[in-house]
Design a protein around this nucleic acid. Structure first.
Lengths: 239, 239
DNA sequence: CGCCGGATTGAAGGTACTCAATCCGTGTGG
DNA sequence: CCACACGGATTGAGTACCTTCAATCCGGCG
């Protein structure tokens, strides 16, 4: 049975590989060949580790449903959250470098991920240039994202960081067809703080302050952005 | 004339592509095919831009001689130095994502770089799996490095950051067969401060403090590390 | 209902920043 | 060849911002 257009879409949406498939524009034959990846779907409960530091590298992961946080650890116990990942994003790229995971990833919600065996992904991308280019874009995007966070951590005040964090979330929800102004946080204040280089109390104070100014409405993990423009403005001026 | 073993080495050392060639273990034929990259060698004077934000992406760059700093800019003029690159390192990977450079790179010294046209590099890595894997490792290493800096920026005190900076430099010089304990800084205190999320005065104070403790000897841009162990210890405890 | 972890709020303290003066090394011009 | 000028580096004093410590609040779940 030849793959129909709808089969192609369902094939792709089966694993919800927004970052991996959608922008590529593959032919029917190429879509068929994606089966060679032999993707495994796995479920993870809230709190489960997807991988940990030192784990042998076998696959990168496409998040199908749910959300994860990634972090790196320092010997003395300090941790730094390096990102929050949601459906459609690729995770685990840190391990390519040394064949071992450098940091760890754990589920913030019950989640489903597709494992993409890396040697098969590489082999396939040798045959499909557009897949190759797309994978390179994904890695490069991760570099750009990380450097953006370096900018945030290195040269923004606490409230600017929190505003930037909320705006990024807003944009990512919008890109998924969800509301850019109303959403639930899947991470704790401590997680946000670690990500932004702040203590949880400072994050909390920033939220409260934004609320007093009518910029957002917060109720624990439920966020509503009331004034996107003001939030945006908060990043450019330190007021 | 068939390529001899020495020819292979000279081919590689011509461009000093430590990160690109050395660990790959290519066959003679594959080494020959590297010529297809048609690498252009270019010189840059101190202060020259290698690329700037918004530049069209054409190539990644292998630094042959000299040193660069990369940085990202914020609308309001704030800048964040995202890294210092030296001979043998690959630079410009940020542009793959959008076909446009996101940040900028400028020469800290008079430098020479090889331009690697990216579409040719991709084409060649489709034919040479070990080159493909190696390029993936380079991108992944950049991600790991950036996440390490996020850890530094997000959860270390000022003196820990400066100590970590010096240790990283030390290791990189050692990896190049240079002295790990004596070297010249090619960047200003302000550059270091921007990289570490500190003001230049804070960097200067940290240097002075380390010197008083007998950990290092500083004379403007000349550094000698007197006690590597103490410097290392300074990262793990906040004393 | 009562517990528990997470979140909020307050007050006090510390680290790094700001502002400013001085120093030093390099390069330039008299 | 020396004097001067200039940018970068050092050092000091006062301040701001974020952290620390601690108390309280809130919401979900047993």
């Amino acid at each position: 049975m030849p793959p129909s257009s709808s089969a192609r879409l369902s094939n792709c949406s089966t694993c919800n590989l927004a970052e991996l498939c959608l922008p590529v524009g593959l032919t029917d034959e190429e879509m068929q060949r994606l089966d060679e990846l032999n993707m495994q779907k796995r479920s993870y409960a809230r709190g489960d580790y997807l991988y940990r530091g030192g784990d042998k590298f076998r696959a990168v992961f496409a998040i199908n449903r749910g959300a994860f946080k990634t972090r790196v650890l320092h010997e003395d116990g300090r941790e730094q959250v390096t990102g929050f990942q949601m459906a459609g994003e690729i995770i685990g790229l840190d391990a390519i470098s040394t064949d071992m995971h450098d940091g760890e990833a754990l589920a913030l919600e019950d989640s489903v991920v597709c494992e993409l065996p890396f040697h098969r992904l590489e082999a396939l991308s040798r045959d499909i240039p557009s897949l190759q280019r797309h994978f390179h874009r994904i890695m490069s995007r991760e570099i750009v994202r990380d450097q953006g966070i370096m900018l945030l951590l290195g040269s923004m005040r606490s409230e600017e960081r929190v505003a930037a964090f909320l705006l990024t979330l807003s944009q990512r929800y919008a890109a998924r067809g969800l509301s850019p102004t109303q959403f639930q946080l899947s991470m704790s204040r401590q997680d946000i703080g670690s990500y932004l280089g702040l203590k949880l109390e400072t994050v909390s104070r920033a939220f409260s302050n934004f609320q007093e100014k009518g910029i957002i409405a917060v109720r624990t993990r439920s966020i509503e952005i009331l004034d996107l423009a003001l939030l945006q403005a908060g990043i450019n001026s330190s007021c």
